[in-house]
Design a protein around this nucleic acid. Structure first.
Lengths: 229, 229
DNA sequence: TAAAAATCTTGATGCAGATCAGTTTTTTAT
DNA sequence: ATAAAAAACTGATCTGCATCAAGATTTTTA
């Protein structure tokens, strides 16, 4: 299958990009920012709607997805301390490319897009850092692209389970805030297939499942499955 | 299928991003740039290899693709006057995320990546423009992502044929420099399926095919097919 | 605490599209 | 001009996975 380090769905926290701003710029940002609470399942931003804000996720866990009937396509999962919505800000486009919705109760800071753009145009170090973030994002999207178009069910399933373990919960055991249906839109398969595969993985001694709790038992074999596709 | 303006594979020319450089910066760029000729089928850059250059395609037509066995996955086709390789330059990564290879004889200008980064860090307007380009790129990748994972063969085929017509050749009739196998890695299907679909489209009066020449006869119905998936 | 709704689970069936195994046509090399 | 290699094409077969239909379990609501 080849070495694709990033078939993962999860964006890593970009840390300190705001440290590169001057005091003045920080104040400008603060003055043009509101903090909003979103409940699980609400819509933070809607694909196709007017993109007037950049979203900084202060707390929570969200999915970034393309709407499709009957099933959405999840582009990435973004944990707290990440920017969401950056790719929507290019010239000539003023609508969100995707929808964003929280898996769990979340806090978002909404930054006025024009203020953000203005700072980009005047602070090269900051802009340069944003380029880094965008590119890392893209690298991940490509890996995922490959995963969803080239791997089959087993590979996709083990990719997701490992990714959630490594990138989000930082533990081999975690309590999933996602439904089987959420996993289905994440892996691009039917809900029934998710269920069947989880059972198969469990029967094969790869994972342990009890309710929402998942524990990875045999990481080595999971990696193998991911590689083979 | 929903309104996805960009299931297209082709990057549009970004025009004038270098106009935003000072004379000094232009000279710096010129001094750290070489122009190279590539024959059809050669490799301009190889996925996984050390990324020391940003590529500006001065003349020709290239594919940007992820390597996979048995079949590659084409991310985008890039015509002349475009930058290629931008997403590879993020901090912490120093290898090409993908391979690039020309469909036809091409000229590329190779820009030293450190010089490019240096200019990014000192010229905010330029960096801001690059962000625009990256984002447009991403928007396209997402559209394509959706196309390849959600649409089935007929939709994917008509997407490609229309895209080539509108974005590359700017005419309803064009001479394809791609083989059926190239079309297959572009649409994520088998070569045999490409052939069968082309025949079906031809028999249905959607297109006219003679050798390498393709002519779109019924754009309306092609659009319909693309929408339905 | 019961009823309703949502989620999870299982087996049976169907089909889109890959794979295979050829033949024919076109291109390239000598 | 002719042989060899690559690309284009065709039909038959096979299979991974979705879809459907029904039931069990959990969660939510009243």
């Amino acid at each position: 299958m080849g070495p694709y380090p990033n078939s993962c769905v999860v964006r890593t926290p970009e840390g300190t990009c705001f440290d590169l701003l001057s005091e003045e710029e920080k104040k400008l940002l603060d003055d043009n920012m509101v903090e909003v609470f979103y409940k699980k399942g609400e819509i933070i931003c809607k694909q196709g709607s007017f993109a007037s804000k950049i979203i900084f996720l202060a707390e929570g866990l969200v999915k970034v997805y393309l709407e499709g009937s009957p099933k959405n396509l999840v582009l990435t999962i973004t944990p707290k301390n990440n920017l969401v919505g950056l790719p929507s800000i290019f010239e000539g486009n003023n609508t969100f490319l995707y929808s964003v919705s929280p898996y769990v109760d979340s806090w978002a800071k909404l930054i006025d897009i024009n203020v953000f753009k203005q700072i980009l145009r005047q602070n090269a170090k900051f802009a340069s850092k944003i380029i880094d973030i965008l590119n890392e994002n893209t690298a991940q999207a490509y890996g995922r692209f490959f995963c969803l178009t080239r791997k089959q069910l087993h590979g996709r399933m083990s990719d997701i389970l490992m990714c959630l373990s490594e990138r989000i919960f930082k533990s081999l055991e975690y309590e999933l805030p996602l439904s089987r249906n959420d996993l289905a839109e994440l892996t691009g398969m039917s809900t029934e297939s998710v269920i069947r595969l989880m059972k198969e993985f469990k029967d094969d001694g790869l994972i342990e499942v009890s309710g929402k709790k998942i524990r990875i038992l045999d990481l080595q074999r999971m990696r193998k499955i991911s590689e083979v596709g």
